[in-house]
Design a binder for these strands. Structure first.
Lengths: 220, 220, 220, 220
DNA sequence: AATGAATGAGCGTTCATTCAT
DNA sequence: GATGAATGAACGCTCATTCAT
């Protein structure tokens, strides 16, 4: 009985996952509103009606996607961040794992990117929760960096969070919409470098450039 | 006759603009696929059929939105960039005008953000064209900055473009989805500062980089 | 005043005819239900609304077509028939002029053929009237032929009428739907020959064929 | 299982046929363009959407009508023609079965007559194929008749085909549009008689043709 | 008289959801 | 639990007709 129950649960879970993954694949290719339940059912190898045994509605699939699948991924981010000590290393790890995971599951990435940019978000609550999860990690890193002295103390943390997540998002977005299949994860280090050092030329400005004073004046 | 003609043209254009604006309002609130032609017609104060005198289809409204309305805005960006000389000023102006314009027309901003992040984009061509327009401006600024010596020469410009546009995008997105109505445009200067200087503390970098004192002074 | 009135009537009639002809052209190409008032207006070189100054409705155009245009043609048939004396010559003239007129105005022919074969006929009354006009001519010819002795007296005239008009119709139909532009009018003589003599081989059957008696038995 | 499968297939086919027949009934009464899917659905006793489980579109119903239903009937024609040997008997059988079948299913006949006389035919390909089927049968009969010597050798077969099919068509058409419900099939023999012997009085032709006495005897 | 912009009823079609098997 | 046929509400779009100019 016990054993049978495990099997059944596993079976049940299997089909749930199969449908969820099928839905992600279809949503990624067609977009949520373009996609039909029939397409998802076909991709999952089940009957249309079967989907309603595992999900309350089409919307519910998206909600489960965010509260189940992507939440797991985001929780992995936190673990990856714990592995190193310095704030800058933590930021590096976060961005690297973020790009790696999204590169590993392109369809997940696509659905994530699309849905988080909707206005009327079906999975509004889940997205907000997850977004907070991510932003909190970044906040903690920045605060640690400031405490360590490795990050500027004059930063508005709320803006820095957006600055970081936005740049990462866009790099992913560009990768998703590009035809060529370049390596997304390799963007991690250059990105971290940009976050830390910015685009401004500190060295050159300092040593060699004329007009430095003017620039300085402007940027105060 | 002349006068009548002007009036008629104006009327025609008026109704076109009225429908377009109504559509943007509805799309912003409901999302493109949720929105119905009837809602747009009601919002515009015309009959459903009237919309088809000015637009070929529902999709066409979105296409016109991108090739008409937002294109104008993006061309303004270029003008605003021309007004100043240094690369860093240009970047500042670009980001300021971007945030200002998007703050000025919240619904436009919403539709823009939503549609540019879709997978199957109805206005694909228009978005690509506009995206290129923006990226080109940023590219030119970065290249000028590198020539001037105000920006690092070891930058991968393709990444810097995404880094900048992504952060701006996310800042807008956060503003769009926030309940409180804070001032978006005021984010421009801090953002530029982040782009230029990064989050890293020069104090730490000091060990490796010359020029610490000057930057530290500015940063207090 | 008198003169002005004539001019006006002429103008009015001109536009009426122009619209009617335009409608026929469009109906012929697109079919009545496929055709739109806008297309007719464009073809006639008038505004959509103008059509409603001359015709009560779209249906009314078709009604006028039958009660006006084709009626005139069918009345010409009667005149052509009068020009000769013998029944067989009259039949020949009828069929010749019929094919000639329909060849001369291909679009009129098309609309005529299409509409007379509808079930729910918009111009039901007009078609019935015209059909009667034609059938009456044929009836008279057959009756004269019988009186003259040039046509069989054992004919069911109701059937003969259909037999003749049907064959003519089909010959026209085939011509209308064929790609090659052969000469329709040249079918008149062979058709009359078929009507008169049938396909049966009188001479040969009589002289050379075996099995003649059997055939005879069967056909009584 | 076997049995269940048969039942299911039967059910599926049943509904397909039910919808097809319902559509024919509605098309016959209203005409194809006047008829709505809702009317067809109501007549078939199904929901509107159900129709699209069996037919791709409204047009497809008409296409299936021609490629399924009427094709079967026309193939029966060929069989009926095979049952007898002489060309004239074959022609008689063809016309008899044609009239019988069309009388048996008045609505089918109506839709057939209407659609085959359209200009822009939705089921163009199917109609052309079927038309060829019929014309080929007639051609073969005429050629056989000529070989046998029972039909004139100076006939233009292309014209004879139209001559025959046209007369049959018109007889059907007249029956369809008449109010009184006379027996259509009874027209078969008189029609064949007209085809073979024509309307001309052999007595007159006598001067030119041999074999008069025999024919005269048969004709009294 | 002539225009043509505006109307809105109406239709073909889709698809999320249900439910009998 | 699994199926997939059936449903019917809903939507984009068309076009005959009207009417202010």
């Amino acid at each position: 009985m016990e054993w049978e129950c495990i099997i059944k649960t596993k079976d049940k879970n299997d089909k749930y996952q199969r449908i969820l993954q099928a839905a992600i694949n279809v949503f990624a290719q067609q977009g949520f509103y373009q996609a039909t339940i029939s397409q998802v059912a076909k991709e999952a190898g089940v009957a249309d009606g079967t989907i309603y045994l595992y999900f309350k509605s089409k919307d519910d699939i998206l909600i489960q996607f965010f509260s189940d699948k992507t939440k797991l991924i985001f929780e992995r981010f936190r673990e990856e961040v714990k592995k190193v000590n310095s704030a800058i290393d933590k930021l590096g790890n976060l961005i690297r794992i973020h790009l790696e995971e999204f590169q590993r599951d392109r369809n997940m990435a696509m659905v994530y990117q699309i849905e988080t940019h909707q206005n009327y978000r079906i999975a509004e609550d889940q997205i907000k929760e997850m977004s907070k999860l991510y932003l909190d990690i970044v906040s903690e890193i920045v605060e640690q960096g400031q405490a360590e002295g490795s990050m500027r103390r004059d930063l508005y943390v709320g803006l820095v969070k957006r600055f970081i997540i936005g740049a990462v998002d866009e790099v992913i977005n560009t990768w998703l919409h590009s035809d060529s299949e370049y390596d997304l994860a390799s963007m991690a280090q250059p990105l971290v470098d940009l976050f830390i050092r910015g685009v401004g030329n500190v060295g050159e400005r300092n040593n060699r450039l004329p007009g430095r004073e003017i620039l300085q004046a402007r940027m105060t």
